[in-house]
Design a protein around this nucleic acid. Sequence first.
DNA 1: TTGAATTAGTTGCATAACTAACTATATGTC
DNA 2: GACATATAGTTAGTTATGCAACTAATTCAA
Lengths: 151, 151
Amino acid sequence: MSNNQFKRGELYSVINGMATTAVARRLQKNYRTAGLEITIEQWSVLYHLWKEDELSQQELGIRTFRDKASITRLIDNLEKLGLVTRVASTTDRRINKVCLTDAAKPLQQITYELANQTMNEALQNISKEEIETVKNVLQRVYDNLTHPNLI
Amino acid sequence: MSNNQFKRGELYSVINGMATTAVARRLQKNYRTAGLEITIEQWSVLYHLWKEDELSQQELGIRTFRDKASITRLIDNLEKLGLVTRVASTTDRRINKVCLTDAAKPLQQITYELANQTMNEALQNISKEEIETVKNVLQRVYDNLTHPNLI
DNA sequence: TTGAATTAGTTGCATAACTAACTATATGTC
DNA sequence: GACATATAGTTAGTTATGCAACTAATTCAA
């Protein structure tokens, strides 16, 4: 029943996800150093809007792995910063489409560059095969916990 | 210079660490379901104290990857719950030793079991070799960002 | 078509995160 | 011994997170 793949002493460091935390922290620092006054959480929303604008808050929650309350507050703050606006959908009045403003445009290029640069720092001396394995395993862990498993 | 190991579209899902977030969320849920009124953050502190009691706040910060302000609040809350006490060090009066109380003892066994059970859910169908690779890569990512690199 | 169930979003409450500025104690150097 | 520096911890301010309860709009079914 228990396959105990972890020694007890290692349990927490895995659950904690120290590495991804460190990456997020470094990226935040790099944004700040470059004079960008946005948080990485705000950036994560912009990132998805740059890929596809006018997403609903619901959809943004799914794509960024957040609940809808968190999205509500993130959009509140992005609106205060003048980077997005909420536009009520004409076909379904429950839905807010979240739309990028012109003020958000200049951020796209510089934040992508800083994010790529940060990933390059983080991934120094790590092979493509290793990265593929990590991505694949993390996805399966995520799926294990979010899709009911019928084994 | 840029080795761009990530396609742009994949950047965020990696930085976000969705899998570790999902594991933490599931563990929190399992604690709640079992009637345990502690957060996983609080548990992470208890976890290290069970391994070695009477650690300083500083040391707890290092072992749980948190800054000292965060540790101050976590210990505040654990003290309110009656699970730990702060005891001033006799040899260095700047230091608080954080000590487990008797009330914390009964939590050790049950939280370990739930954590192990959660990890087993999360790691279904993932091989030991894959787990080793992930742990190894995440550690190297962490080291890349925290130790100055002289290449 | 009316009433139940579902969906999208907001709000209140509690916890937690980071930065920066602060206090207090300890250390090290002249 | 005295002053500069470093270390341990606290506090204030802002942002973010999750859950649960709520409103409003939509859909489904009798």
